[in-house]
């Protein structure tokens, strides 16, 4: 559906996007995860035709965006990083106007606008001026406006930044429903959990470059070496470290004073022998959990960017 090859964007001496390539399959939710200034919006702007690439190619559904921008735009729904509808118009008028920009006839656009207002829970606010909407309502109406012409592909730039938790949840639910209907979704976000919950595949972007991409599992596997199991025991397994390591070759045991014990090994660790070993020493095992790195750990390891940078961006976004 989307093929981006060696895409590059420079502003004078500054390189916003540095030679990135990726593909997005039809019906997939693909996410760009990175801090502010990583090149997410610059990339999306080139893909939607609002900015000209310095170099590289963008094909959307076989259409060369650089050469046939308007044709490509006709199959896109676009949600900018700000809710940019018309303050002077009400919700219904805004949707009808956006539909008219795509050449939809009056009857068709009114039916679709009413349907979308209902779907996004904005029916009661249909006749309210856009400027009187809350941030969450504005965001939902902006997404509804992008869907008015039933686009094949939806671009969402920071869809839930700066809005309340409930609206964010509704938007994520709606994005998932779109995927089920066959719509391809390309989104950018600096919320790790949003990328993890929504996206089929994620690309980590930092300093204008894609550092890694893949499914959440693939990304986790790319940095996860070996297996780590945490045992919660009935008492402090003091002085058992050496004995554990000699009995379970290749493993490293760390005994902690809070009645927990961490075992690391390149191979999978069989639980029953460990539990029997501890039982023979008079220690019961209450819990055994395999510890996997979180997507946040993977992001930090692969990009070298501390997750606190993303969290700072979240605060800047004004999330409630």
């Amino acid at each position: 559906m989307i093929n981006v090859t060696n895409l590059r964007k420079t502003y004078g001496d500054f390189t916003a996007v540095n030679n990135i390539s990726f593909e997005v399959q039809k019906g997939e939710i693909f996410g760009f995860l990175g801090p502010n200034g990583a090149g997410k919006t610059s990339t999306i702007n080139m893909m939607i035709g609002l900015s000209r690439p310095t170099a590289g190619e963008i094909f959307i559904n076989g259409i060369d965006v650089r050469k046939q921008t308007k044709k490509a735009q006709s199959i896109m729904g676009i949600v900018a990083d700000e809710s940019n509808l018309y303050n002077e118009m009400d919700g219904f008028e805004n949707l009808c106007f956006c539909a008219a920009l795509y050449g939809m006839e009056k009857d068709e656009r009114e039916v679709k606008a009413r349907h979308l207002l209902e779907e996004f829970g904005l029916k009661d606010a249909a006749k309210r001026s856009f400027k009187a909407y809350s941030k969450g309502m504005k965001r939902k109406l902006t997404i509804a406006a992008a869907l008015i012409h039933s686009p094949e592909i939806l671009f969402l730039d920071e869809p839930t930044t700066g809005i309340d938790v409930e609206s964010s949840r509704q938007i994520r639910k709606r994005i998932k429903a779109l995927k089920e209907q066959g719509t391809t979704v390309f989104l950018t976000t600096h919320y790790i959990e949003e990328a993890e919950r929504l996206c089929d595949r994620i690309a980590f972007i930092a300093k204008g470059q894609i550092v890694a991409s893949g499914t959440v599992t693939e990304l986790m596997d790319s940095v996860s070496h070996g297996h780590v199991i945490r045992f919660v025991t009935s008492k402090f397994a003091e002085n058992l470290t050496a004995e554990l390591q000699s009995n379970f070759e290749g493993s490293i045991a760390t005994i902690q004073s809070d009645n927990t014990m961490i075992m690391k090994s390149e191979e999978r660790i069989p639980l029953l022998p460990v539990m029997n070993f501890l039982h023979d020493k008079g220690i019961d095992v209450y819990e055994a959990t395999e510890l996997r790195p979180s997507l946040e750990d993977v992001f930090v390891k692969l990009t070298g960017i501390e997750s606190s940078v993303l969290k700072r961006d979240e605060k800047k976004g004004g999330r409630k």
């Binding site: 939607i48 035709g49 609002l50 308007k70 044709k71 735009q73 006709s74 896109m76 676009i78 900018a80 700000e82 940019n84 509808l85 018309y86 303050n87 956006c98 920009l101 795509y102 050449g103």
Partner: peptide, 14 residues
Amino acid sequence: SGRSFERLLLAPIS
């Protein structure tokens, strides 16, 4: 300045 003009630039019209 309100960025609503972007809608016109991104619409499939010349």
